[in-house]
Simulated scan of single mutants.
Amino acid sequence: MLSSLQRTALGIIFFLATVVGATVGYMLYGWNFLDSFYQVIITVFGVGFGEIRPINTPGLRILTILVIICGTSSAVYAVGGFFQMITEGQINKALASRRMNREIESLRDHVIICGYGRLGQILARKLQESQQPFVVIDNNSDRILQAEEKGYLILEGNAADENILHTAGIQKARYLTTVLPDDALNVFITLTARELNSNLIIIARGELPSTEKKLKLAGANQVILPATIGAERMAQMITHPAAIDFLDEAEGRRNLNELLAQIDLKLEELSITLNSPFVNRPISEMEIGGQGAFVIVAIRQLDGKTVLHPSHSFILQDGDTVILLGHEGDLPQFARRFSMKRTGLTYRGTTF
């Protein structure tokens, strides 16, 4: 079956062939070129200006009949293909939008990225590499087109709009990141998102150090200050160049677990739920159950607060996430034995 573009091209070619052939036909009956071409045009389009010369022979009449049939049919065929091309574009766009909305509706525990600028693009690429589902929200049509070309799930609109956030599935999302270069917008998006989902983990970007407190008050769990991070990185390169070089080489693919895997170690995240045997129990009981297979590095609480090097008497609560460092083969066995959920993200084949 021909595509709409092929139909349009075929119709135009057939129309031009009809015009050329008919013009030559009239000229063979002794008409000059201008009269012949004019007669073909008024015949095909039926403008009713009358005949240039009498059509009084069977040959001329048959030729004129063929011009009417072939010229009109080819013109209608070409115009029909053109409108089909326009209609198909609109239909395909509408179908693609519906398909994307259905995919977004089916998401669970996904990430919402507000802003597809430089940070948003890097974040989206990393999440795609880790096979973590996400939705991009941006109000710039050019950036939306870039994200669409990458195959990302996208929504065009204002990320501070409640309707847009609902469409992005904020009630079922696990994370929301707002990485716009405007601190005021990031604060407003954080306020709106926190109101819509009190359990959402919000990671916000801040340009100015003074914005960090405002974002935390608005409901952000974590605040990232790119300028501060960049400056600290530069300072580390100056004060600890050997260590930084070692880590850069060991990262290779910028993955800490790949470095640990070389010495048979692995970082793992296990969640504490209501049916967990360790809920409302001290960390020491988990360590005893692990029989020395791991070290508890930190606890991330439900409100987003991280407790580093927790004491043995620290009481685990429902919703806490325990970050463990242990032998690669022991951690999954421990999780299965105590029916604990592994909550980490998979990054290039490695679980965090």
Rank of each mutant, 00 (worst) to 15 (best):
4 S>V: 01
234 M>H: 07
330 D>S: 12
57 T>E: 05
318 D>E: 15
18 T>L: 02
9 A>K: 01
89 G>D: 10
17 A>V: 03
352 F>Y: 08
171 Q>K: 15
58 P>E: 07
294 F>R: 05
71 G>L: 13
22 A>L: 12
210 S>Y: 03
258 E>N: 06
218 A>L: 00
61 R>F: 10
222 Q>R: 12
196 L>D: 08
237 M>R: 12
253 R>W: 11
305 K>G: 01
75 A>N: 08
46 G>T: 08
50 G>W: 03
205 R>E: 11
131 Q>E: 15
319 G>F: 01
324 L>K: 07
113 I>P: 03
351 T>M: 06
218 A>K: 02
14 F>S: 12
242 A>N: 08
104 I>P: 07
75 A>P: 01
103 E>R: 10
244 I>N: 04
314 F>E: 02
327 H>V: 04
200 L>F: 02
113 I>M: 03
299 I>K: 00
64 T>R: 09
249 E>P: 00
12 I>W: 10
319 G>E: 09
144 I>L: 14
275 N>F: 07
219 G>C: 11
322 V>Y: 13
23 T>M: 12
101 N>V: 01
91 I>D: 04
97 S>A: 15
157 G>T: 08
164 I>F: 10
175 Y>V: 13
325 L>H: 07
23 T>V: 09
176 L>M: 15
259 L>D: 08
104 I>G: 04
304 G>W: 02
117 G>W: 11
144 I>M: 13
1 M>I: 11
194 R>K: 15
211 T>I: 00
316 L>K: 06
130 S>C: 08
146 Q>S: 13
195 E>K: 14
119 L>C: 11
41 I>P: 00
128 Q>I: 04
325 L>F: 09
